[in-house]
Simulated scan of single mutants.
Amino acid sequence: MKTAFAVAASLIAINPALASEDITDQYPGSPLYQKPVEFIPNVWSAIGATAPPTYENNGHNNNLSFIVTGDGVIVINGGAAYVLAKALHDEIKIITDQPVKLVINENGQGHAMLGNSYWAEQGVPILAHVDAAEAFEDDGAQSLQQHQRVLQEKAEGTTLVGPTETFEGARTIEMGDYVIEVLHLGPAHSPGDISVWLPKQSLVITGDMAFHERLLPIFEDAITADWLETWDTEFEALGATYVIPGHGHPTNMDQVRRYTRDYLVYIRGKIGEHIDAGGDLTDAYYVDQSPYAHLDTFEELATKNAGRVFEQMEWE
């Protein structure tokens, strides 16, 4: 007999209508794109838009999750803005009297770290992988400028604040009723990507290791061969039952495998065929990606992804 959690995960996985980049805001009473939902007991997530960051969605286009441990709250992602971090904290205060004791940044991108300015103001420690901290130090000013252009007056209060502590490899946190493993599994979407693993609950909060409702972006430093190796050798080994991805609704491993690992295999296969046929970069942008055309952000990302994979595979 399925548990209620398994049923919920199944319903989310088969109902893509739950997410749409055409809906600008699903929680008008808050800067958050959606009201936080409890996926399994004490594990919550405010699901962001599957669209790029906009003024209308307040830059909330990734998932802001938190765990109510019984002895404090752990937040996963600082958020893309001061206003978003504060809005998340307001929701946490409605749910529990337990204080926020730790914020974990999933990587060094703006949507993970720009909201640190709020959490630091509250005196909350902020943890990130050392590579993510370095990436934010290098690129944070550019992320902030982009954020300010998009959010305009909504960017008020957002400043550059990096993590207060870093780690390499893994960090285990015991708090309340939970053992929480913060894992850097290897190269994936961006420097310092981490996944938060709850072994007792068989739940992983993946960060940008895994996507399923929107097309994943391949950045210059996202080496697809390395991402696949990390997935196959480390991420799959977790054997997670429940998955909260970096973007999109909570789901299961089958869904994120289909739209992350299998997409990477697919696009590398198409580009490989193109290279073998003597194709160049100009035509590589237009290899067939139609099996994934239904995903949000496909129009924004498909051709860019193909070009970056060509540039990588040309020299492999």
Rank of each mutant, 00 (worst) to 15 (best):
T251H: 12
V161H: 10
S65K: 10
N15W: 04
D177L: 09
A133Y: 02
P36L: 14
K35L: 13
P250F: 12
A46E: 05
W227R: 08
K154V: 14
E213M: 10
A46Q: 04
A19Q: 11
A277K: 04
G186L: 03
E168V: 07
L84M: 03
T251Y: 00
Y178M: 11
L102D: 03
S20A: 01
V37Y: 04
T172Y: 01
G162E: 08
D288R: 06
A237T: 07
D131H: 14
V161F: 06
G162R: 08
I40V: 11
D232T: 03
G157V: 02
E38W: 06
H89L: 06
D296A: 08
Y266M: 06
E213T: 13
A306D: 05
A210M: 15
I218E: 10
Y259A: 07
Y178E: 11
T164F: 01
M175P: 00
N58M: 13
A306Q: 04
H274T: 01
I94S: 14
L228I: 12
E56A: 09
Y27I: 02
P28D: 05
V204K: 09
L185Y: 05
K86I: 05
G278K: 01
W197K: 00
Q255H: 04
F66T: 04
V150T: 13
P52F: 15
N58Q: 09
Y178C: 09
T164E: 03
V100C: 06
F39D: 00
N61D: 13
H89T: 08
I218S: 07
V196S: 03
I67R: 04
N63W: 13
Y259D: 05
A133K: 12
